[in-house]
Design a binder for these strands. Structure first.
Length: 591
RNA sequence: GCCCCUAUAGCUCAAUGGAUAGAGCGCCGGCCUCCGGAGCCGUAGAUCGCAGUUCGAAUCUGCGUAGGGGCACCA
């Protein structure tokens, strides 16, 4: 990446200035190179002179000018250097920019990929909704963000594994099984009441009806316990099959569906508990086992739901309010209950061991909804306790979606069956618009999902702006071939005299400047785990292309100009296609 | 009580501590005899409040205000 090259040049220049005695001796700090907001300032800029002002005890402008002199003295650099207000600004030369078009064409489908991961194994676990109902738009944000991150890490040089964690152990599955049983019996004409807090949704009814049609009434003749267990399992399978179909519509596939139950049938969960017990971090209290990071005892009332007032009244012996840290980190959490049914948290411990130690994923990335935020410090505490490498566990928390129906906020819940399904929305707006919308906002921002507005704005959705831009480039290429404009690009390998043409038009240069940012964007997303940067970038690229398209004609230009512009258009097409691909979207050749 | 997230233009959102805070939608006004007008160009319009740190703050810190989530063997 050119940015890394600039950083090395700056460091060299500082070193040379120090050797020449023009700058005092000091350790060179981390050098930051960024894009100035105003393009007139150049393509890149560094604030290193201002950072050094204090260390070197010299005015920033003087430092900047000194460094700039050594930068200018470097032979064959692809940039010019200016100093302004303490900044050192770099402007890429037209010759260098022109060469980049050939670089992009040569990279082809691999353009934008970097080697941040150096082939290391990374995992993105996403989706992982309880298998007690069809996939809702809440899960939609999870899977689109997770899948896009997985695409990104792949492009960043990681070997990526995509996993869905099936919560098939625990009490919710028993309630689900009982709900399926009731609906199954009802489908067969037997009056069977729904269990308390059962799953009321139509999805469960549909699944039960399908099972009844396929299996007949044989489960009614079994003992009820056995039937509930069997139907629960069949129900999970049917729900997961439906979820997989839904996700396939969104271009999302998994390498593995990991069963929570397997952590306990394999014995790994119990091994982990013994491991923690040997360290004195497992405490028995009221017949249950608790995890306590520092071995501190169980407080009364822990493990129970309390009101705000009860939390406020939570004081220690001397009457002081207990700091929240004591609750989050020192407080024990049940590892398993007296009936030895593991809790959610208990399974998380062997699961992360399985991910990091047995399968070698580092980082193992979790995509979690904000309802899990309290589990983040607990999981990290447990990771330390069992001895996972620092930083192996990365947890991304995304904000929930607010659903509006005719202007009213709707609370979504699977139990009540009033959640909006991914399938319903994809039916309305299509998979590409769905993914784009889910990616268009920072994961830290809750966003409002108003289906009426979305349907209305479907034609104006920015997703079509980007796809239209891509389709238009393809159309130009088609037309050029049909009408024999004589601008064939040929194979990237067979360029005659690459870089011989120099792009001089401002719109050409602006477009190239935008295109060469793709590797930086991939790195940005891979590092911050914030995929919304793609939507901004895709729009910027399209905008730059549109401007180029308006101002720089291909057809009718002199042959060398026309051919060079055709190459630039192809580079823009490759960049847009790659960005869309990273977002998991289609890059249509026609619309 | 405590923890986490959020507050930017009429609306929805951007902006690795950096120079004149950017887009889309909406409003108003322009642009095709010409490679796709789902386009392009232009006008108007914003950092919740008060302190602090810094050469420099939408961004970091503190105190507020407002909204969301959490601190249950729930899921």
């Amino acid at each position: 990446m050119i940015r890394d090259h600039l950083i090395r040049c700056i460091a060299d220049a500082i070193g040379q200035a120090q050797q020449a005695g023009e700058l005092p001796a000091f350790a060179i700090p981390t050098i930051v190179v960024e894009h100035p907001r105003q393009p007139e300032m150049g393509d890149y800029a560094t604030n290193v002179a201002m950072q050094l002002a204090r260390i070197a005890k010299m005015p920033p402008a003087k430092i900047a000018e000194t460094i700039a002199q050594y930068l200018r003295a470097m032979p064959g650099t692809p940039f010019s250097v200016e100093v302004a207000q303490g900044f050192i600004n770099f402007r890429l030369t037209p010759a260098y920019l022109s060469q980049q078009v050939d670089v992009i064409l040569e990279r082809g489908a691999r353009w934008g990929e970097i080697d941040l991961g150096r082939g290391r194994k990374a995992q993105v676990e996403h989706g992982s909704a309880n298998p007690t109902g069809y996939a809702t738009i809440g899960t939609g944000r999870n899977v689109v963000v997770g899948d896009t991150l997985a695409n990104t890490l792949e492009a960043a040089g990681y070997q990526v594994h995509r996993e869905w964690y099936i919560n098939d152990a625990g009490s919710q599955v028993r309630v689900f099984g009982a709900s399926v049983y009731a609906r199954y019996a009802q489908a067969l004409g037997v009056d069977e009441p729904m269990p308390e807090r059962g799953y009321q949704g139509e999805d469960v009814q549909e699944v039960a009806r399908i099972i009844a049609e396929r299996e007949g009434d044989r489960y009614l003749r079994l003992p009820k316990d056995e039937a509930v267990r069997a139907l629960g399992q069949l129900g999970i399978e049917a729900i997961m099959a439906n979820i997989k179909r839904t996700l396939a519509r969104l271009n999302i596939r998994y390498d593995n569906f990991f069963s929570e139950k397997s952590l306990w049938t394999s014995g790994l969960g119990y091994e982990m508990i013994e491991r923690l017990r040997a360290k004195g971090l497992v405490i028995e209290h009221d017949g249950a086992l608790w995890f306590s990071e520092d071995g501190s005892p169980i407080r009364s009332g822990q493990g129970q739901r309390r009101t705000d007032e009860e939390y406020a009244a939570d004081k220690d012996e001397s009457g002081r309010a207990l700091p929240v840290q004591a609750v989050l980190i020192r407080s024990p959490k049940v590892i398993r209950d007296p009936e030895e049914r593991p809790t959610y948290f208990a399974s998380d411990i062997p699961y992360m061991w399985h991910k990091v130690m047995l399968r070698g994923f580092n980082p193992a990335i979790y995509v979690w909804g904000e309802d899990h935020q309290a589990d983040v410090p607990r999981l990290h505490a447990a990771a330390r306790a069992i001895g996972l490498p620092e930083g192996a566990i990365r947890i991304l928390i995304y904000r929930f979606i607010t659903l509006l129906r005719s202007g009213q906020e709707v609370r979504m819940g699977k139990r009540k069956g009033n959640a909006l399904l991914i399938d319903d929305v994809v039916d309305e707006i299509g998979p590409d618009a769905f993914r784009y919308i889910m990616l268009s906002r920072s994961v830290d921002t809750k966003f409002t999902f108003d289906l009426d507005v979305l349907k209305e704005q479907n034609e104006k959705n920015p997703v079509y702006y980007v796809q239209y831009g891509h389709a238009r480039i393809c159309s130009i290429e088609r037309k050029a071939a049909e009408e024999n404009w004589g601008v064939e690009i040929g194979d990237p390998g067979s360029q005659q005299a690459p870089g011989a043409y120099c792009y001089e038009h401002p719109a050409e240069q602006a477009l190239i400047r935008r295109l060469i940012q793709l590797p930086e964007i991939v790195e940005l997303v891979a590092t911050t785990l914030q995929p919304h940067h793609y939507t901004t970038y895709a729009r910027e690229v399209t905008q730059a292309f549109s401007k180029f398209y308006e101002e720089c004609r291909i057809k009718g230009s002199p042959p060398d100009v026309a051919r060079a512009r055709m190459k630039l258009a192809r580079a823009a097409q490759l960049t847009l296609a790659k960005t869309l691909k990273l977002m998991g979207m289609n890059a249509p050749e026609r619309m």
